[in-house]
Design a protein around this nucleic acid. Structure first.
Lengths: 168, 168
DNA sequence: GTCTATAGTTTGATAGAC
DNA sequence: GTCTATCAAACTATAGAC
């Protein structure tokens, strides 16, 4: 609370005029961080084209988002790790639902014989895990700066999923 | 420190007789948590059989480990999120190196035309992300308890990777 | 709406007796 | 090797003046 107050140029006590307690401030900040982040993703998923084309646009869009905002990605993963039931429900309903629904629809078009829920999660996980492991991959064989390039990650993930499901 | 002391039945002061400070205790506990966890994984990867068979054994082994020890999985993901450079290097060298090397070798056999580092990371990410998202997936469409069953996850991931790379 | 001042807790770590 | 007692710092939150 002291750090935040200092960052916005007021004292800690003044912060309590705007938010009832630390939890309220955190929830408001989290809500702000997640607002509008999903729009670009959902648009890519609902764009016109073959399933493979939509997949490519989605992976590209999601990869760019994760690469461009490391703090947001860390916040997302921290919530998955530490968020209590009520906070995760809020997040699921207000932030994830729309893009995830579009992802399952793409999954159904892409792999009608597979469980769409599992495929949708797999698509997201393939992208996210590359960034999640970035700090440790530099110490593992084959890990280069190249592998943190969103274009390289997107190309790899798209190729993997196309091979698995694509008609191409 | 008070909680840990209480859990082992001594006072907080006595804890400082065994560990210099909180960080030392944490590192020792982490080292203990990670020791031997990789053995089963590496064995599965180095077993005899076709690449597809080794893939199936690896995914099965890794999925079972993640499902059987949620605290270990959370510790792993917390280190990826918060671990400083030196701690991640220690982890990479002492815990991840051996299984990861075996994973890249499998990746080379499985997909000679792909970047083995990226493929190895993808194999791990596909498994881990399903568990990482478990608490939020119950609020997303299509999410059922079935999707937290390690057998179901392993089958899905194996099938996805086999389709992408397998000769089958 | 912001300030100073402070209450009330919790935390990591130490001193010194046994 | 464990204890009691305590310190110093950091924390969330509140009281009350302006």
């Amino acid at each position: 609370m002291r750090d935040i107050a200092g960052a916005v140029g007021i004292t800690q006590a003044a912060l309590y005029h705007h938010y009832a307690d630390k939890q309220s401030l955190y929830l408001a900040a989290m809500g702000h961080a997640f607002s509008d982040k999903a729009v670009g993703i959902t648009e890519a998923l609902q764009s016109k084209g073959t399933p493979t084309e939509r997949l490519e646009r989605f992976i590209s869009s999601f990869t760019r988002l994760m690469a461009s905002d490391p703090d947001f990605r860390a916040l997302l993963q921290r919530e998955l790790l530490d968020g209590d039931e009520s906070r995760l429900q809020l997040l699921a309903e207000q932030a994830f639902l729309e893009p995830f629904q579009a992802m399952t629809e793409l999954a159904r078009d892409l792999a009608p014989d597979c469980d769409a829920h599992l495929v949708a999660i797999s698509m997201a996980g393939l992208v996210l895990f590359h960034f999640e492991t970035a700090p440790v991959r530099q110490f593992l064989p084959g890990g280069t700066k190249r592998h943190n390039d969103p274009k390289v990650v997107a190309k790899h993930v798209t190729q993997l999923l196309s091979r698995a499901f694509g008609t191409a």
